[in-house]
Simulated scan of single mutants.
Amino acid sequence: MWLTLAASAFMAAGGVWAEARTPAGPILPKYQAECAACHTAYPAGMLPATSWKRIMGSLDKHYGTDASLDAASVKEISQWLQTHAGTYKRVRDEPPQDRITTSAWFVRKHDELNSATWKHAAVKSAANCMACHTRADKGSFSEREIVLPKGVGTNERDK
């Protein structure tokens, strides 16, 4: 039962990626190449346009790392992110520090996981979607595709 509860907690809204893919189609190859070189190329619909604008405007200090790109790449990726940013109620509010993992919807979706989950050797941080979402690199966060690493628990299990 705990696995089902954890899977439910880990499920991100399918509409996030669906919105990010429409109307222009799949993820921008340049965005995928540049961003996925260091972390999951998060679906654009997971953040509002204002958050993406700030992120793209401060790549030289991108969460403690210099992720600078040439001006043409910044312009192309920024335009794509602005076009496909989240606009629906769930992501309309800007999360603290423009971090997906601090957004209200993310916290709510993962609230059944115990605090040790994010420190687990196979997970390392809330930003490591691929640790449990086996197709996160393809933009899929379906509950059916979640595989929790051995030893990852939920608050429900710990009661």
Rank of each mutant, 00 (worst) to 15 (best):
S142V: 06
A104R: 03
V107L: 13
W118S: 03
R108N: 15
S142D: 13
R144G: 15
A104S: 12
T117Q: 02
W105N: 04
M130K: 12
T102C: 10
K138N: 15
E94F: 08
W105H: 02
A136I: 10
T134M: 13
K124S: 15
R144C: 15
P95T: 00
G139N: 02
C132W: 01
S103Y: 00
A104D: 06
A116V: 06
R90G: 12
S140M: 11
S115V: 09
D111C: 14
T134L: 04
P95Y: 04
R92E: 04
T134E: 10
P95G: 05
G139M: 05
P149M: 08
A104E: 07
H110M: 09
K109L: 06
A127T: 10
T134A: 08
D93W: 00
A122F: 01
R90I: 13
I146V: 07
V123I: 02
G139T: 07
H120S: 01
C129I: 00
I100R: 00
W105K: 05
P149W: 09
A122P: 00
L113Q: 00
E94R: 10
K109T: 13
E143V: 12
T101C: 07
T117R: 02
K119M: 09
S140L: 14
S142N: 12
H133I: 01
R135A: 15
K124D: 15
E94H: 06
F106C: 07
S125C: 06
W118R: 00
P149Q: 05
V147E: 13
R90P: 12
S125G: 10
K124T: 15
R144I: 14
S115N: 13
E112M: 10
F141N: 00
E143Y: 10
C129M: 06
A121L: 07
A126F: 07
K124P: 13
R92D: 01
C129V: 04
T101K: 02
F106K: 02
T134F: 05
K138F: 15
V91E: 06
A116P: 09
V123R: 04
S125L: 03
T102Q: 15
H110T: 06
P96W: 02
N114C: 12
R144V: 11
L113R: 01
R99C: 08
K138W: 15
N114T: 07
S140P: 07
H110C: 10
E112L: 10
E145Q: 08
R135V: 08
S115E: 12
K124H: 14
V123E: 08
N128V: 05
D98R: 03
E112I: 11
D111P: 14
M130I: 13
A122Q: 09
A122D: 10
W105I: 04
E143H: 10
G139C: 11
R99N: 11
A121C: 07
R144H: 11
C132I: 04
L113S: 03
T134V: 09
M130A: 14
S142A: 14
R99Q: 13
R90M: 13
V107C: 07
A122K: 13
E112S: 07
S115I: 06
L113G: 01
F141L: 00
A127P: 09
S115L: 07
N128D: 12
E145P: 02
D137C: 11
K109P: 14
I146Y: 01
K138P: 11
